[in-house]
Simulated assay, not measured.
Amino acid sequence: MAKKTRNRAAAAGAATGENPRRPCPCGSGKRYKACHGAGDDVIVIRPFAGLAAEPDLVAMREFLPSAVAPLPLREPAPVPVTLATVLPGASAALVRPDGEIMLGMQVQTRSGDLSADLARALRWAQEAEPGSALPVVGPGIGGSDPIRLQDVLDHDAPLDLTLHQDFGWWMASADGAEPAPEVVATLERANAVIMPTEPVVAEGVRAAYWVDTGSKAHLRWVRPEPEERLMAALARLQARGELNLTEDTRYAGAFRAHGLLVPVWDLDREQHHREWTEPAAAFAARLDAVLAGLDDEPLTGDERRARDALAGKQITLR
């Protein structure tokens, strides 16, 4: 650890009364010096760990183009707080004229802990005047006390996501005020490149989204399981010839995003997104059954080889 980082962690611990070698009081399971006592240069691989909303947060951060959700705060806020995929100008936060707070997931810059960035932006917005916007979260934003989403959210509440096919909600305002010309111009540019995206809603299916990229359609499915366990289950399904959703689909691979694995399937672009409801539910049932049996039956040689082959189809996003 660099001297300046060591000194910063020690100072933070002294200020808060926390021993940097003890478990962090936020409940992350990490030592304090690697969590709330860490400097901004520390990369938190899984920033939303411990939250039921983790898969939804990862989807909003990485690939959902236009979506909003009420933020499930642990304590009710005096004004509505809405989480959004992206805000005008890729702002970290803004306070609408009617007082509603909006936090952006897809921001221009961030520290090594996205959870802390969002919590700082929220704290800033709660003190800001209506009509204010926060371009980026930087040093000193939100005060000096360490805070993360895990400190303010209901850990057991998922996000109630609403997907939009454009960014018209940027214009929404309770007082009917006309949007600024730069917002209108930004809206037009954003709408021109948005990719149609729809949730795949079925029993046992969560955080799965149909996406039309223009040349292909995909199913992107954020999974909450630890990567090693999920890869073992996918390998078992691959060895059985049961990894695809239907005979006409293809498992394209997976990407890592904020500590979670996101499997991706290539789909028939001509089919409506609702046609994937039953195949996704059937796959979820197969996957759950395999996950439940992993502890009792280790992978065979064929399944291990399948796992190694699948590992070659993974990339990591930050």
Rank of each mutant, 00 (worst) to 15 (best):
V95G: 01
L87W: 00
A53K: 05
C24V: 07
G27E: 10
G27F: 08
R74D: 08
S28E: 10
D98L: 07
G29L: 10
A93M: 03
P55S: 07
F63D: 00
P25T: 14
R96P: 02
K30D: 09
V81W: 01
D40G: 03
A38T: 01
S66P: 01
V42K: 09
V81R: 03
P70N: 14
V81C: 01
A93S: 03
A52I: 10
V86A: 05
G89W: 09
M102E: 07
A77W: 10
C26F: 09
P78E: 04
P70H: 13
V79D: 05
A38W: 01
P80K: 07
L64I: 11
P23Y: 14
T82R: 12
L94N: 00
V79W: 04
T16Q: 14
P88H: 09
V44N: 10
A69W: 11
N19C: 14
G39N: 02
S28Q: 12
R96V: 04
L73S: 01
I43N: 05
P55Q: 03
C26S: 08
V68L: 11
A77P: 06
L73I: 05
V81L: 04
I43H: 09
A52T: 13
G37R: 02
K33S: 11
L64M: 10
P72M: 14
C35L: 02
C35V: 02
K33D: 10
P88T: 11
L94E: 01
G29H: 12
P70C: 13
A52Q: 11
S66A: 15
L87T: 02
G89T: 13
R96Y: 05
C35E: 02
G17M: 15
L83T: 00
V95N: 00
D98P: 03
P76Y: 07
P80N: 12
A53V: 13
C26M: 11
R96G: 02
P88D: 14
D40V: 01
P78L: 07
D40I: 00
A69E: 13
Y32S: 06
L57I: 07
E100L: 09
R74F: 07
E62H: 12
H36V: 04
S91Y: 02
P76N: 08
D41I: 07
S66C: 13
I43R: 08
L83G: 00
A53S: 15
L87N: 01
T85F: 00
V44Y: 04
C24S: 06
R96C: 07
P23E: 15
G99W: 07
V42D: 02
M102P: 01
G50Y: 14
R96W: 03
I101C: 01
V58M: 11
A90F: 04
A52Y: 09
A59H: 08
L71I: 05
V95D: 00
R31C: 13
P88G: 13
V58D: 03
L71S: 01
I43G: 03
P70L: 13
I43E: 13
L94C: 06
